[in-house]
Nucleic acid binder design. Structure first.
Length: 913
RNA sequence: GGGAGUUUAGCUCAGUUGGUUUAGAGCACUUGCCUUACAAGCAAGGGGUCACUGGUUCAAAUCCUGUAACUCCCACCA
């Protein structure tokens, strides 16, 4: 059988993915087994796969595949998010490219376009996940705006409204002037920005003459006046908002501004006369201690306005241009206006000075170039205190565990300072708010119901109303559907207690990025507690942010984000998966260098070549005798490999319990590459042309098999390919075809750790050191690996280590025999394994000086080591204070070091004589 | 302004409640090998005053005080 020496992932990956789909192996139905449920963090429906998705979904797939192999009924539910703002923006853009304006369309026409767009671009990302090998139950693919999910959203809205947890009100909200919608406070990102601080002159309206200036100044007042009169100076970063000023505020305790008390000032350019009010909110240290108050355009000013009963003048339109409420600059964009007003103030002599200033400006998360505008408007809110109260305990009490744990703090901090959630969006793409407005006795009343028919019924029942009804135009925040995801996927809102929700809920693990801990994780916990009275998941694994190798975030504009599809074509999905996992400890950012995928690709190839080796072996037939010493050595090798595998599995199991996936993978990698390929296969590999005994062959195939099972969650494709090859070795075509058509590694049982013999592992380590010693000796003296050597082991006083590995040592270090001696050997070079001296006779002359130097170096090290041990042992406090075990250990170290030193000295003497 | 985290080999990271040889891994690096599975490979090897400082202890990468640098989150100083 001829197999290519290079593994080719492409054909293999497609073949097996289709096979898994055909056999419906990802599909789950409730049964008697324990469920293992994971819900995908739904990517944006029209998005494309990026490295963050790759990481996130690789981790999910590893966990899901492993759980499946451990006998759990694994169900990984995929789906997409309608992403209202992002998708609507894309649709609007596409329409405008066709020369169509959104508001020239009716809502229905627009939605038609939006659905068309969604169907065209939607789901690409799910197709891409298949390339990665994601074992999602595609039959369950959901969409946050499909019928079942939409119905869930509506029901929850109605329910929370009826419980008094959703209300509509006029509030200061964050407004996106580009998307023309309200945002929640979580959707605003603050960025530091270099700007200007403008110092404006507000002349006093009612003060022409000030008596006793000197006295006032002596009391600490800072009084400005010029030929035009007395004035106060106000520092602001937003001079364009002065048209909305309705007061000026000072701190009542601010000695430098006492003289302004009770007066009125004139807003520059605008000419409006506004009162000087006093409030302790004002920071006396900032600027001049005088604050302009614009209740319509600043949250703090709004609060001041409320307490002091100020007028609110909204000078901006929804798109950020100056509104007709303003006496000046009507129609001008807010930023253009800022520049213009600065010029005009300057020209009018109303600008005292301008300073450079750095402040934080809020931007829309979805429109990163658009500065958000605080805006007073009528919106729908979820009252959050109740939800904070129910969502905090599960995490603090450990019913939900966060990995890494530090996010517990972040979570608590947020919940303890919770703000109400603005859920209405002035968008069409999304779940329309199920509220209808009616007019009863000249007053607007709201009817909230799951549909119009129900709304009519309520209107009639409650208000005796049967006339016109107008549904709210707004849609809901995307996250208002996402927070129901673990419930709505199993129809737990519409059909509480149904078979699926009862079986699959709660889910087990949630794998997500930390930046959506508030948006999504926290709110799912709230919804879970509210509607299921149980947590939505038990563990949350927060992945890191995928960065480039320079530590920069991957972004389209930087062009530093590799295309995952291309990466998979280049290195194979298995290679990329391994690359991602190797650099991804939980919670740490990932500095992704695509070279790491090479390691994964090379590993696939290594496994592939191990298969080539094993499948090329000829098994000895009955009458063909295999050297009994060889088969004995092989037996030891097999036993050792079994012990080693059990040991590694123990560690891997612990790693998985703590979600240390990269470490688990590294252990498996070393088990396969180092222990299995480099050591075990070399131990049992028959000489060229000779057969291998059947027991060893069967054992090797069995071990190889289990290695594939262990690795399968990490590298699903190559392991399936090799596993099939191993299953069919020695089978006739028909049997092989049957196996290939009917079995998959996917649903085999994951090997578990068993008791192992530490003694045997230690003995093998000693043997491995001995082998390395001989190899090193060859390397450093230029002796060919082909030259047969002899090895003498001086074990003194008949102290002999277990020699069962001797034949293996001979084979792997190309030594004809190992003899045990007392004392030293002439004409030899030596090395030490622990405290044991090993001698190798050489035919050629020995470079005495070089040997002496080696021995002296070793001696120096050993003496230094002994000195450090003695420092402890000579210390009475150590001997008396440290635990007995520790002292005994140090004594052992001392004895070993002394023995080693004596041996090295002996060798040096021997060399010199 | 508040909080959290990080700092160990050239790079990315382990190092479990202080004690198992004067600190480990992978990659990279050096040397020698096209040895009949694999050069995407094999063998061997070099490389670190554990950010700095002071302390606690018989014993510190590990615990405590401080310092520095970087990162992230939260917050209404215009």
């Amino acid at each position: 059988m001829e197999i290519a020496s290079k593994y080719n992932p492409r054909a293999v990956e497609e073949k097996w993915y289709n096979f898994w789909l055909e056999k419906n192996l990802f599909h789950s139905e409730p049964d008697h087994r324990k469920p293992y449920t994971v819900v995908i963090p739904p990517p944006n429906v029209t998005g494309v796969l990026h490295m963050g998705h790759m990481l996130n979904n690789t981790i999910q797939d590893v966990l899901v595949r492993r759980a499946r192999m451990m006998g759990r009924n694994a169900c990984w539910v995929p789906g997409t998010d309608h992403a209202s703002i992002a998708t609507e923006a894309k649709v609007v853009k596409s329409l405008s490219e066709q020369g169509i304006k959104k508001h020239d369309l009716t809502r229905e026409q627009f939605l038609e376009h939006a659905w068309e767009w969604t169907h065209k671009h939607g789901g690409i990302i799910l197709q891409q996940l298949r390339k990665l090998g994601a074992s999602c139950d595609w039959d369950r693919t959901a969409f946050t705006m499909d019928a079942q999910r939409s119905e869930s959203v509506t029901r929850v809205f109605v329910d929370l409204y009826n419980k008094g947890l959703i209300y509509r009100g006029m509030r200061m909200i964050n407004w996106d002037p580009k998307a023309l919608t309200a945002l929640s406070s979580e959707e605003v990102e603050y960025r530091e920005e270099r700007s200007k601080l403008y110092y404006l002159k507000y002349y006093l309206d009612d003060l022409d003459d000030l008596k006793g200036i000197g006295d006032l100044e002596e009391q600490g007042n800072i009084i400005h006046h010029d030929e035009k009169g007395f004035y106060a100076v106000v520092a602001t970063t937003r001079p364009e908002t002065i048209m909305g000023d309705t007061a000026m505020c000072i701190n009542p305790k601010d000695s430098k501004n006492q003289w302004l008390r009770g007066h009125h000032v004139i807003v520059p350019l605008v000419g409006r006369v506004v009162p000087v009010i006093e409030d302790r909110y004002v920071d006396t240290e900032f600027g001049t201690g005088c604050l302009k108050v614009t209740p319509a355009h600043d949250v703090n000013d709004y609060n001041l306005g409320k307490t002091h009963g100020l007028e609110t003048i909204d000078i901006f339109n929804a798109d950020g241009t100056v509104s007709g409420q303003s006496p000046l600059y009507v129609g001008m964009d807010r930023f253009v206006c800022r520049k213009q007003i600065a010029k005009d103030l300057e020209a009018a002599g109303l600008m005292e000075k301008v300073e450079d200033y750095t402040n934080k400006v809020g931007y829309s998360q979805r429109n990163p170039d658009t500065a958000i505008e605080p805006r007073l408007s009528l919106q729908w809110f979820v009252s959050m205190q109740h939800f904070a109260d129910i969502a905090l305990p599960p995490v603090m009490e450990g019913r939900i565990k966060f990995y890494p744990e530090k996010y517990k703090n972040t979570y608590r901090q947020w919940l303890e300072n919770i703000q109400d959630w603005c859920i209405s969006r002035q968008l069409w793409w999304g779940h329309r708010i199920p509220a209808w407005y009616i007019e009863v006795d000249g007053k607007e009343e709201i009817v909230v119901a799951v549909n119009e028919e129900e709304a009519r019924r309520i209107a009639k029942e409650k208000y005796g109303y049967a006339g016109e009804m107008r549904q709210d135009e707004d849609a809901l925040d995307t996250w208002f559907s996402s927070w129901l995801w673990p419930i709505s996927l199993f129809d737990g809102i519409n059909n509480p207690g149904n078979k699926e929700i009862s079986y699959y809920y709660p889910t087990v693990d949630l794998i997500t990025a930390p930046d959506i801990i508030f948006f999504w994780v926290a709110r799912m916990i709230m919804a879970g507690e509210e509607y299921m009275h149980d947590v939505p998941f038990h563990n949350v694994y927060f992945t890191g942010v995928v960065r480039d190798k320079l530590g920069r975030k991957m972004s389209k504009s930087l062009g530093n984000s590799p295309d995952p599809i291309q990466l998979m074509e280049q290195y194979g999905a298995d290679g990329v998966r391994m690359g991602m996992l190797l650099t991804a400890p939980a919670g740490n950012d990932i500095l992704f260098d695509e070279k790491i995928c090479e390691q994964g690709r090379n590993f696939s190839n290594k496994l592939w070549n191990a298969l080539r080796l094993v499948s090329g072996w000829r098994v000895a037939s009955g009458e063909e005798a295999v050297d009994s010493s060889t088969s004995q050595a092989n037996e030891v090798a097999v036993q050792w490999m079994e012990q080693r595998m059990a040991q590694v599995l123990e560690g891997v199991e612990k790693d998985f319990e703590q979600y240390r996936l990269s470490e688990a993978l590294m252990s498996c990698y070393k088990l396969a590459w180092d222990d299995f390929c480099s050591w075990y296969l070399e131990m049992v590999k028959p000489a060229f042309g000779t057969p291998i005994d059947k027991d060893t062959f069967d054992a090797t195939v069995s071990i190889f098999n289990r290695l594939m099972l262990i690795l399968h969650p990490f590298m699903p494709f190559v392991t399936e390919e090799i596993w099939h090859a191993l299953q069919t070795i020695g089978k006739d075509d028909e049997a092989a075809a049957f196996i290939n058509a009917n079995y998959s590694i996917m649903n085999q049982h994951m090997p578990t750790s068993v008791f192992y013999d530490q003694r045997m592992l230690d003995d093998c380590d000693t043997a491995r050191e001995m082998i390395a010693g001989v190899r090193n000796l060859r390397n450093s003296r230029g002796i060919s690996p082909k030259e047969m050597l002899e090895l003498y082991v001086s074990c003194g006083e008949g102290k002999r280590t277990d020699s069962r590995f001797d034949p293996i040592v001979c084979k792997l270090s190309n030594v004809s025999r190992i003899a045990y001696i007392d004392g030293k050997m002439d004409g030899c070079v030596s090395f030490m394994v622990g405290t044991t001296e090993c001698f190798v006779p050489l035919k050629q002359n020995i470079d005495v000086d070089a040997e002496r130097k080696k021995l002296e170096d070793e001696l120096r090290y050993a003496e230094g080591f002994l000195a450090s041990v003695m420092k402890k042992l000579d210390n009475e406090k150590f001997v008396n204070g440290a635990p007995e075990k520790v002292v005994a250990l140090e004594r052992q170290k001392k004895a070993d070091a002394e023995q080693k030193i004596a041996a090295l000295r002996g060798q040096l003497e021997h060399l010199n004589s």
